[in-house]
Design a binder for these strands. Sequence first.
DNA 1: ATTGACATTGCACGATAATGCACGATAGCT
DNA 2: AGCTATCGTGCATTATCGTGCAATGTCAAT
Lengths: 251, 251
Amino acid sequence: MLTTHRKKSILATLKKDGLVIAKALSESFDVSEDTIRRDLRELAAEGLLQRVHGGALPASAAVADFGHRQQISTDGKLAIAKKAAGLVSPGQVVILDGGTTCVQLARHLPTTLQATVITHSPSVAVELVDHAGIEVVLIGGRLFKHSMVAVGAAAIEAIAHIRADLYFMGVTGVHAKAGLSTGDLEESYVKRALAGCAAEVVVLASAEKLNTASAYVIAPVTTANIIVVERKTSRVLSAPLVAQGISVVRA
Amino acid sequence: MLTTHRKKSILATLKKDGLVIAKALSESFDVSEDTIRRDLRELAAEGLLQRVHGGALPASAAVADFGHRQQISTDGKLAIAKKAAGLVSPGQVVILDGGTTCVQLARHLPTTLQATVITHSPSVAVELVDHAGIEVVLIGGRLFKHSMVAVGAAAIEAIAHIRADLYFMGVTGVHAKAGLSTGDLEESYVKRALAGCAAEVVVLASAEKLNTASAYVIAPVTTANIIVVERKTSRVLSAPLVAQGISVVRA
DNA sequence: ATTGACATTGCACGATAATGCACGATAGCT
DNA sequence: AGCTATCGTGCATTATCGTGCAATGTCAAT
């Protein structure tokens, strides 16, 4: 029995059953439990599975889950969301992106605020149910599950008929030269379309997004009128943005 | 049985049923109630659920307020949702209406099912995130908050381009003569449009809906190919429907 | 063929985690 | 108020874990 072969089998079993148990593996491969433990430890170190007492679980399950992602939303993101919520004036037509920060933003809009919110994120829409004064418009399309937003031709088409006052854009990268970027091609198209139909664009950028760029560029950084960053953001990071005429707001 | 796996199962059960009972869990996992209590305590400490005497409730705010309505969702509705979920075949294109029953239906679709779900309910969309095999298409429009569904011209327009195998329709009234009806005009337009583009229409009707009619008529009752009703439904109520050639399924 | 470097494995042992039971405290119902 | 189910805690038991070490096997260079 080859070690690598055994490891592959373990991963295959894991994928098939959703979990593996150390004792059972040791019997089925006829090796000691120590050996299995070693295998599991090594596979866990490679990020191929998640080690737990008694066996292992798939790695993805730990990472996945949107609800979980929302929980790891940092204090910084929360502060950004609150600050951004304050930028909305009564009567405005506002576009809210998907992503955890925008969900937080929606949650922190005053419940009494009279406004129209346009969004392609079902999560944001659900969040706004009990904001009596807010008219919600949902943009349809194929649902990109990783970010929980509608994308695709249908979404682009729906956006084409919209004019908004304000667009709160979530991004994964803000770079003075590379521009605003995100990790999914379809998403970048939608964000570009949304930016194009709003009078003012507000980018929400938590600390780790600044001065980085992701795979797909949405637009030059000057597309943003305002960028909301964390309070602690150093001047070194904000200066190049301010130099291009962007208003950098600290949360 | 792995501890971690048991906890995940508890959370999954909680999500499915809206509550879990300690004693029942201890029996189904064949461990002592102490162990279950420990699990629940730890999950509660992580903020993943809310501990109550005798069991636990969901913790998430988004789930909670919808869960309020969901709690009044009777056992009957749950049974209907489960039964209806079993009507979906792999590979089908399915339309899911809004409403608590359809959210339950979504929740009870097999996680491994390969299918396309079209919906105008953001709640349903959110529910299907962790069904890896399901492609979700969101229909946009103005959000009618009471039912949490997209309605209006945009929704109708989007629906016009759709062909589906199956449409699960929620209604507030099913009457052999008055037809299928609902309490909102806009909603009735959308439901009619959805019914028109599906090969087969399945109506989900909990006990109190039968033999009643609401303000706005969607379509004649014969539009429905199948009506799923509660197990206890009397023959007196189902007979007039069967007489019109509709298949009445008891949950 | 021999040797040495290295990987793999099984075993021993102390440490840690998980579980079930016993007991007194508490919550919810009548 | 009184009853019962449920709860939390301390403790003993068992399973599982990690580490160090020796035995075995592999492979390449000599």
